[in-house]
């Protein structure tokens, strides 16, 4: 394996005693530089946990996480975080309720001692389609989609090399989603960025990613190419059921779903 991200036999246990959860089980995958890798699967299957482990939020995992050839645990200096940013699933929890948009965006710039603060903030807001009149608002004065755009702007303002995106567009309407996806695609090409994208929207994942891993109960049950997702061409029954359900709501089909 020679990816910019190499995950090998990753296991994560969370919780304690009888409430311990084996949230990630023997997960391995590799993402090449400049590639966009998709993670999909059941709610609670461990997708966010995989991203959190990669971004260094857990100490107690087993297996290997290599980023850019270095073992993840060894070099979590300030640079590590500058190069690897995560957009969290829940924009409500990840924005500080008493920080304005301006404070939220300038904080990482201060931590990493970057210059041209004013220009960077303006560019970041513009890129995610928020006008300057949003700059001094608090989170509670923003709609759900507007908050998510602030979260994306905050991750991108440091110009990272790797972006971990946890449901980055699920709170966005389709027009902003299209803008954000176009932006992510442009940035990826321009700066040769690498993405891991978690999403429940299979059309979004197929649009953005070359390779997609399907998770169920902590494990990767199947790896698919973009083409296979678009043609609904899967081998595992769990994946087949997932692809079928993505076609839309159907009461009869809902009653016949199996648990895997």
């Amino acid at each position: 394996m020679a990816g910019i991200i190499d995950i090998h036999n990753l296991d994560v246990h969370l919780g304690r005693g009888k409430d311990a959860v084996h949230a990630v089980r023997n997960v391995s995958f590799s993402v090449k530089k400049g590639e966009s890798f998709g993670l999909v699967g059941e709610s609670g299957s461990g997708k966010s946990t995989v991203l959190r482990a990669i971004s260094g939020l857990y100490k107690n995992f087993t297996g290997k996480i290599n980023i850019d050839g270095k073992v993840q645990n060894q070099h979590k200096g300030v640079d590590f975080y500058k190069n690897l940013q995560m957009v969290f699933q829940d924009p409500y929890a990840s924005l500080h309720p008493r920080h304005t948009v301006d404070q939220t965006l300038s904080e990482p710039l201060q931590i990493h001692k970057l210059d041209q603060v004013e220009k960077r903030i303006r560019t970041a807001l513009e890129r995610v389609g928020l006008g300057l009149n949003f700059r001094f608002r608090y989170p509670h004065q923003l709609s759900g989609g507007q908050r998510q755009r602030v979260a994306i702007a905050r991750a991108m303002i440091l110009e990272p090399r790797i972006l971990l995106l946890d449901e980055p567009t699920s709170a966005l309407d389709v027009s902003v989603q299209a803008e954000v996806l176009n932006l992510l695609t442009e940035l990826r090409i321009e700066y040769n960025l690498t993405y891991i994208l978690v999403s429940h929207d299979l059309a979004v994942v197929a649009y953005m990613c070359e390779q997609i891993a399907v998770m169920n109960q902590g494990q990767i049950v199947e790896n698919l190419s973009k083409d296979q997702i678009m043609k609904s061409n899967a081998t595992e029954r769990y994946t087949q059921q997932l692809l079928a359900a993505s076609k839309g709501y159907d009461r009869d089909a809902a009653g016949k779903l199996l648990q895997f």
């Binding site: 999909v40 699967g41 059941e42 709610s43 299957s45 699933q89 449901e167 699920s170 709170a171 429940h200 299979l202 059921q241 997932l242 359900a245 993505s246 709501y249 159907d250 009461r251 089909a253 809902a254 009653g255 779903l257």
Partner: peptide, 14 residues
């Protein structure tokens, strides 16, 4: 249901 996968979503909507 924005944070639910499509199969669980379908069951909840039912």
């Amino acid at each position: 249901t924005s944070a639910l996968d499509v199969t669980v979503q379908m069951q909840i909507l039912a």
